[in-house]
Simulated scan of single mutants.
Amino acid sequence: MNETIVCVVGNVATQPVYREAAAGPSARFRLAVTARYWDREKSAWTDGHTNFFTVWANRQLAVNVAACVEVGQPLVVQGRLKVRTEVREGQQQWASADIDAVAIGHDLARGTAAFQRAAKPEAALTAARPEPSWETPRPVGTPDEEAAQQAPEPAAVT
C-alpha cells in the first residue's frame, strides 16, 4: 500500500537477462538515468549525475522485454522503487536501487517504434469458455406475432 511508485526515463545499459522459473518468466536489465540541466555560463545543456537502476519485469512483461529491448534504447519505466543496502566483504556498504516494473515502453520523444500485440498462448484459447447468448427470446403469443402469422404474404409484382 505505502509503496514508492516512480517513472524514470533513461537508456538501457545492459542486455536484458531472461529466465524461466517455477513462478513464471522474469527479466532484468540495468537502466541509466542521467539528469540534464541548462548551464547558463556555457549556454548549453550539460549532463549531470547518472543513476543506475536494476529493472525487474515479470510474466508477460518479461517475455516482451526479452523480445524487443536492446542496449542503448531510450525507455520509460514505471514501477515500484525498492532501495536495498548490504554490507559486503566485511566493511564495505553497498546500495542497490531496483524497480519492479509495471509498464515499460520506448521513449517516443527520441525515436519511433512499431507496436505489435503479443500473441496469446494457445492453451488459453482451448480453455476459453464459449460466448454466452445475450439475446432475449421473444415471448410467444404477443399480439404482433399473432398478426404477422395471420396476415397473407404480399404478392410479387411482375
Rank of each mutant, 00 (worst) to 15 (best):
A101M: 01
G111A: 02
I99S: 05
E131I: 06
Q73S: 03
P132W: 08
T112A: 13
A155Q: 13
G24W: 00
Q15A: 12
W94V: 14
C7S: 14
L81T: 06
T50G: 15
R129S: 13
A127K: 07
A123C: 02
E153Q: 02
R117S: 10
A57P: 03
P121A: 12
P121T: 10
S133W: 12
A119I: 12
T126H: 09
S96P: 15
E3A: 09
D107Q: 07
D144Y: 11
A128I: 14
W45T: 05
E20M: 12
T136L: 09
L61D: 10
Q60L: 11
V55E: 02
L75S: 10
R30V: 11
I104G: 06
D107I: 01
R40A: 13
V9F: 02
K82T: 04
V83P: 09
P152N: 15
A147C: 13
G79M: 01
V33R: 00
A156L: 04
P137Q: 00
E153R: 08
T34H: 00
R80C: 14
T112C: 07
A155H: 14
P25G: 08
R110Q: 11
D100V: 02
L81D: 05
V102T: 07
E41W: 08
F29T: 09
A119K: 13
E41G: 04
V65S: 02
D107A: 01
N58T: 08
F52K: 03
C68L: 12
N2H: 15
R59Q: 14
L75R: 01
W56M: 15
A148T: 06
V8T: 06
A13P: 06
V8S: 08
V63M: 04
T112L: 04
G24V: 03
E41L: 10
N51W: 07
R117Q: 15
T158G: 15
Q92L: 03
C7F: 12
L61F: 08
A103W: 02
E20N: 02
Q73L: 00
L125G: 07
A95I: 01
L81H: 02
A123I: 12
A21F: 10
N11T: 05
T126I: 13
P74M: 00
T85W: 13
P137M: 09
I99M: 03
R59L: 12
N2K: 15
G105V: 04
V63G: 07
A95W: 02
S96N: 10
G72M: 01
V102C: 11
I99D: 11
R117M: 08
E135A: 13
W56K: 05
E89K: 01
G72H: 01
A123G: 15
L75E: 01
V8C: 11
P121Y: 05
Q15H: 12
I99G: 02
W134A: 12
V71L: 06
W56P: 13
A21D: 04
F29R: 00
N58L: 15
R59D: 10
T85K: 11
T14F: 01
V76S: 00
G105Q: 04
Q116I: 13
T158Q: 06
G10V: 05
V69G: 05
P130D: 15
A62V: 00
A32Q: 07
N64A: 09
Q93F: 11
T136S: 10
